[in-house]
Each structure stands twice: as structure tokens, then as C-alpha cells.
């Protein structure tokens, strides 16, 4: 057991999977000689060579497409896109090709690629470097979308994603790369499906994913001081969603709040609310609440940015509202 950072966990998963199978390759901008913008491939270029740790030109749509083509003939590419904003350039190959090749071929072809990318706000990166976009990918049939909240999942889910036969989008977060956690030394895998109760509680369910799980955990601590026992549920996988675990939790607590860093329209919170309506509407004792970003491009100005993006305080206040305390 050692405490390692999120980026180190991703690096370790790359290293082990590349050592395990020479069909596993990594591709992306600056991931080779430079070791990766987030150090996720640090040292691997020297270890595995330029044919397996591939520095690509700035051509997101086509290098993702090349990864997809290579995966169709048995390779297992891990594609890094520097920011989810740039993944918009690769939407054609991801959404029109990767997500649909198995289906269009009647199950005769597959493209087991992994695309990793940070999606979220950092500090004043402004409108073109702060997109979240999870909702766009989770609305595409044929993709898997996962959001590891810490090093254990970052490591274990990347390893599963490499071995799974479907295209997997892993959404990381700029503010999580240095987050630390105790990670077992021996190899392990974390399943790509399944929501996880990361804090048990009985009064309200706080649903989060990716970075917002941490906002929920912080809010839960403050709620505890107020005598409110919050359960925190990490969705882990946005596609497919684990509606069973959501239902069970809501049936236990009867109250729910969904925290998302993204804007609300047609988003994760909207989807969770719809599922709750369908699955356990009558278990609710109060109207569910969504805590989400303001419906604006992310501002540069620090004060405006803070106002646009939800905080633990917002989650806390929202939970009090669901509890009927304000």
C-alpha cells in the first residue's frame, strides 16, 4: 500500500497494461518525449519506444480515428486528448465511428479503444479550456463513459477499460491529477460499471461523479455537524448508469440532491432525476435538487468563475433545502 497521486495511478496502469500486452499502445499530443501534459505517460516513451508511445500531431479527429482503425485489427490504443474541449474535434470518429462500428457491422467488428481526457474547470482557464461535456458522451449509444473520482478508480478502471472490448471514454479532471489515495501495491481491476456508495447515510443521498463527488463528501461532513446524515453516491459510470444503486439509495434516504459541475440542461442531473421519477418517485419525501454550473460559458475572471461553478458550499446549501431546513 502506498499513497500515490491520481496521475501516478494512471501512469502505473499504462505501464502495467503495456508490459502485459504489446498490442497496447498510447497515443496523444506530447505524451512521449515530453511525458504527457499530466505526466500520465511519464517515462514510458523510454521504456516502450516511439512505436508504442506515440507523439501525435495536433490532429485530434484523425489520430483518434487512427487509433480506432488500429483497434479494429487487434490493437488496444489508449488515446489521450489534452482537454475535453479538443475532443469536440474528434466527435466524428468517436460518435460516428467508434460508437457505431460494432452495431453497423452486426457485431462482426469492434473497436476497443480507450480515450482519456480531463473534463472540467481548473483555475481561470476560461471558456475554451473548461468544458465538461460528459453529458454529450453519455448520450451516445455504443460508448462507455466512466469518471474515476480518485487514484484507485483511475488505476483500476483504466486497466479494465484497456481489456474491455468496447470503446471507453474516461473523463478525468484537471483538479484531480494531484489528488492522493492509498493504492494497493498488487495488481487489481475496478469494474467499469456500477455506482458506489462512498459514504453511508440515512437522511439524504448526494449524487456526484468525477470531481463533484468530492464536493458532496465535503458537504456531507458539514451536514453531519448539523445532525444530518448524508449518503454520498459516486455514479462512477455515466454510461451505462447503475439505476439499481440509485434507486436503493433513494428508497433508503427518501431525499436526493445531484451535484454536477456541468450546466444543467439535458445533463447528468436531468437524467438522474428522470430515472428517479421512473424508478422510485413514490419513495421521495421532498423535491430533488440539482446543483450545477450556471448556464454561461466559463468566465475567465476568478470571481465570475467561482460564481459559475458549483462549490461544496452550494451542495451544502442545496442539501439543507432538500431537508427543509431553509
Amino acid at each position: 500500500m502506498a499513497e500515490i497521486a491520481y496521475w501516478e495511478a494512471i501512469r502505473r496502469a499504462h505501464d502495467e497494461e503495456m508490459a502485459n500486452d504489446r498490442m497496447v499502445i498510447a497515443m496523444g499530443e506530447d505524451i512521449g518525449v515530453a511525458g504527457g501534459t499530466y505526466k500520465a505517460t511519464l517515462g514510458l516513451y523510454d521504456k516502450y519506444g516511439e512505436e508504442r508511445v506515440i507523439d501525435t500531431p495536433i490532429s485530434e479527429n484523425s489520430y483518434t480515428g487512427i487509433g480506432i482503425g488500429a483497434s479494429m485489427v487487434g490493437m488496444r490504443p489508449i488515446i489521450e486528448i489534452m482537454s475535453i474541449n479538443f475532443a469536440l474535434l474528434a466527435l466524428d470518429t468517436l460518435v460516428n465511428a467508434a460508437a457505431k462500428i460494432r452495431y453497423m457491422s452486426g457485431g462482426r467488428a469492434q473497436c476497443p479503444i480507450v480515450m482519456r481526457t480531463p473534463g472540467g474547470t481548473a483555475h481561470q482557464l476560461a471558456a475554451q479550456h473548461s468544458a465538461r461535456l460528459a453529458r454529450m458522451f453519455m448520450s451516445t449509444s455504443g460508448l462507455r463513459v466512466v469518471t474515476p473520482r480518485g487514484p484507485i478508480d483511475a488505476y483500476g478502471m483504466l486497466k479494465s477499460a484497456v481489456r474491455c472490448n468496447d470503446p471507453v471514454i474516461i473523463i478525468e479532471h484537471e483538479q484531480m491529477y494531484n489528488l492522493k489515495e492509498e493504492v494497493p501495491d498488487e495488481e487489481f481491476f475496478r469494474p467499469l460499471e456500477g455506482a458506489e456508495i462512498v459514504r453511508e447515510g440515512s437522511d439524504i443521498t448526494l449524487v456526484g461523479y468525477n470531481f463533484s463527488v468530492h464536493l458532496c463528501l465535503e458537504a456531507a461532513k458539514r451536514l453531519e455537524a448539523d445532525g444530518i446524515n448524508a449518503e454520498v453516491l459516486d455514479l462512477r459510470s455515466l454510461k451505462p448508469l447503475d439505476r439499481e444503486t440509485i434507486r436503493k439509495s433513494v428508497e433508503k434516504t427518501h431525499r436526493v440532491l445531484i451535484a454536477e459541475e456541468d450546466e444543467a440542461p439535458v445533463g447528468v442531473g436531468a437524467e438522474i432525476m428522470a430515472l428517479i421519477n421512473e424508478d422510485c418517485f413514490f419513495a421521495l419525501d421532498a423535491q430533488p435538487v440539482r446543483i450545477h454550473a450556471a448556464d454561461v460559458p466559463v468566465p475567465y475572471n476568478a470571481r465570475l468563475e467561482k460564481a459559475a461553478i458549483p462549490s461544496a458550499e452550494d451542495v451544502y446549501q442545496g442539501a439543507l433545502k432538500v431537508m427543509g431546513k431553509i
Binding site: R102, Y103, S105, G106, G107, Q110, S141, G142, R144, S160, A161, R163, C164, N165, D166, F189, R190, P191, L192, E193, G194, A195, E196, I197, R236, D242
Partner: peptide, 17 residues
Amino acid sequence: YVLDDDPDPRWIGPLQQ
């Protein structure tokens, strides 16, 4: 044919709580 119809549970789940 949407996703692998016969996936390996080691990679996919279910998650043991």
C-alpha cells in the same frame, strides 16, 4: 451489438460494494 454482448465481468462488473 451495441456493446460487447458477452463481456468479461472482471472488467465490467457488477461492483462489489
